[in-house]
Design a protein around this nucleic acid. Structure first.
Length: 554
RNA sequence: GCGCCUGUAGCUCAGUUGGAUAGAGCAACGGACUUCUAAUCCGUAGGUCAGAGGUUCGAAUCCUCUCAGGCGUGCCA
């Protein structure tokens, strides 16, 4: 709706210019927005103020000129007026609003989608937790966020691939192998010194126990270093399987799982280093090979190959991101924990060294999650292995509540996750508030069917019967959904959807409390049933973007 | 020290590329169930947008500085 108006305004400006009414060489972009107060119209534009300088006329005078023309379109506008310092306020014809119900009905599950993405190929890489331990609650936020961003982009017309990057190369795998090996020995009756830099969590013991059950003590026979590397592989696979299961249970499905090790096996890491060397971005210093990331605004240059000849994690990431673009992605999105933010400039540098715009890489930083129980923080420490896993949280509060809570906040602000609140089946809990609206509508439908109504369809339903303030507000909110999805996609901000849904659910509940749907007037009942059909559809479409279910009964 | 993020109602947070009188939920207080789900609704109250300057028709939003909190600042990943 907003777009339609913007287009309309733009056309008006252009005709004004060809008619010589406007003299500005360059017409500013026609900005239309929803004002804070309904007295200021359904939409408002500040275009006259923006034109004031180049037109050398007071804003109100320009606004008057424009309004005198816009006003003629009585089909679209109920009224158009100039207000304040020069705002143009648009009041749309009620029938224009009501028509959006027809659009929603005919679009169905597609309502809210748009073509803003123009089919551009996007890869969203998220979670990508090291296969050295189970997913914890922080990963859960990353999972919910990445998945929602992917869904929202897809709805906005992007072609999306979800990817998980498996860090199965590097020191941490060796540490895992050592941790498993030591626990294995310990469980077989040997006394061991378990070093503090090994993984302390109980899951390591579980893996060791499983190995004993399966293979007995055979790894005591093999030389230690060999056993460690074998157990690193086995342990990593077991943990990865667990991660995959946890993600499935959370409703997150990655299209591709990309192994860091494969970059070495295929020679891509060496290739990338050769590429950078060829382009002159690398230099040697103190025996190591450095990437001049300072050329791209980084604080300092970064090591790619260490003095001992071993590549760094950064080297893998160079090869990995090079690979992404070679696969033909127009846009690459990395969802990271915010503690990696220091890594952003160097990776932006990588992208530019590949001859791409830094905007071709979007890094979404997801802040930490503080887990609370009845308002009191739950102690967590990765080092000691005391942490709350994603599985535990999902088991306790359910998938829907967990997902919704993770997405309720902007990703770059810290999140307090209160277990009791997420579990509570009350008005405190925004998940239920939204889901309840959907279930309530379904219940009204059941009731309508019992009373012999058939659910109305587009056409034939007298929409003009819808005229109470609650009805009109609800329709306006429904009409805004596509704009919300598009903005959410283009800003990579999934939290806009939960906010919108709470707002929409609120408008429905208000409507419900003041207006009876099934009543004496069959035409009015039909019109209201159609309105609710559209409301349920929109609620459902929004919830699906978040990976939250839309129950028909609660 | 330097860098990134954050600072908005008692609490948790929104605030649409600078717009008109800064919003919502929770908590508090007062109301609404014989009627389609009260997991709901209606109302009241609650603010130095951390602070100080600056930019302009106009700032919670942009710039500078200060303060507070979080994170980062490895030839770890």
């Amino acid at each position: 709706m907003k777009k339609r108006l913007q287009h309309h305004l733009r056309k008006c400006l252009e005709t004004c210019r060809t008619d010589g009414i406007l003299i500005s060489e360059h017409l500013p972009e026609a900005l239309v927005e929803v004002p804070n107060h309904s007295e200021h119209g359904d939409f408002a534009s500040n275009i006259a103020m923006l034109l004031a300088k180049s037109e050398k006329k007071p804003p109100r005078q320009i606004a008057d000129l424009l309004v005198s023309r816009l006003r003629n379109d009585t089909e679209l506008f109920e009224k158009v007026e100039v207000a304040g310092p020069g705002f143009i306020n648009f009041f749309l014809n009620k029938d224009v609003w009501r028509k959006t119900l027809e659009v929603i009905c005919s679009s169905g599950d597609e309502y809210g989608t748009c073509t803003a993405g123009q089919g551009k190929r996007v890869q969203v890489e998220f979670v990508s937790a090291n296969p050295t331990g189970p997913l914890h609650i922080g990963h859960g936020r990353g999972a919910a966020t990445g998945d929602a961003i992917a869904s929202i982009l897809s709805a906005a017309g992007f072609e999306v691939v979800r990817e998980y990057y498996i860090n199965d190369a590097g020191n941490q795998m060796d540490t895992l192998g050592r941790s498993v090996y030591l626990r294995y020995r310990e469980l077989l009756g040997n006394s061991v010194d378990f070093p503090p830099n090994c993984y302390q969590g109980d899951y390591v013991k579980d893996i060791a126990r499983d190995l004993i059950a399966k293979y007995g003590s055979r790894y005591l026979e093999t030389p230690e270093e060999e056993a460690v590397s074998l157990l690193a592989k086995i342990g990593g696979d077991i943990i990865l399987k667990g991660i995959q299961q946890d993600l499935r249970d959370f409703g997150v499905v990655h299209d591709t799982w990309f192994s860091e090790q494969s970059l070495f096996d295929s020679g891509k890491v060496d290739e990338s280093i050769a590429y950078l060397k060829d382009k002159g971005f690398l230099y040697e210093n103190e025996g190591a090979l450095w990437f001049r990331t300072t050329d791209f605004g980084d604080d300092k240059d970064r090591v790619v190959v260490r003095g001992n000849g071993v590549t760094t994690y950064f080297a893998s990431d160079i090869a990995y991101h090079r690979e992404k673009y070679e696969q033909g992605f127009d846009l690459v999105i990395d969802v990271w924990g915010a503690d990696h933010h220091g890594y952003v400039p160097r990776l932006k540098g990588v992208v530019q060294s590949l001859g791409r715009s830094p905007d071709d890489l979007k890094i979404v930083l997801v802040q930490l999650v503080a887990l609370l129980r009845n308002g009191v923080p739950v102690a967590m420490s990765t080092r000691s292995g005391e942490f709350v896993t994603l599985k535990e949280v999902v088991d306790e509060v359910g998938r829907d509540a967990a997902r919704f809570f993770f997405l309720m906040r902007r990703s770059d602000s810290q999140l307090d996750f209160d277990l009791e609140l997420a579990k509570s089946q009350s008005s405190d809990n925004p998940v239920y508030y939204v889901q309840y609206a959907h279930a309530r509508i379904c219940s009204i439908f059941d009731n309508a069917r019992e009373k012999g109504f058939t659910l109305p369809d587009v056409g034939g339903t007298p929409l003009s019967k819808l005229e109470t303030p609650e009805e009109i507000s609800l329709i306006k909110a429904l009409a805004a959904f596509p704009d919300v999805v598009e903005a959410s996609a283009l800003h990579f901000e999934p939290h806009r959807i939960p906010f919108y849904l709470q707002d929409l659910a609120g408008l429905f509940h208000s409507f419900y409390n003041k207006n009876r749907v099934i009543g004496d007037d069959p035409e009015l009942s039909a019109a209201r049933l159609l309105l609710l059909k559209c409301t349920a559809q929109t609620l459902k479409n929004g919830l699906i973007l978040l990976g939250v279910s839309a129950p028909e009964r609660m």
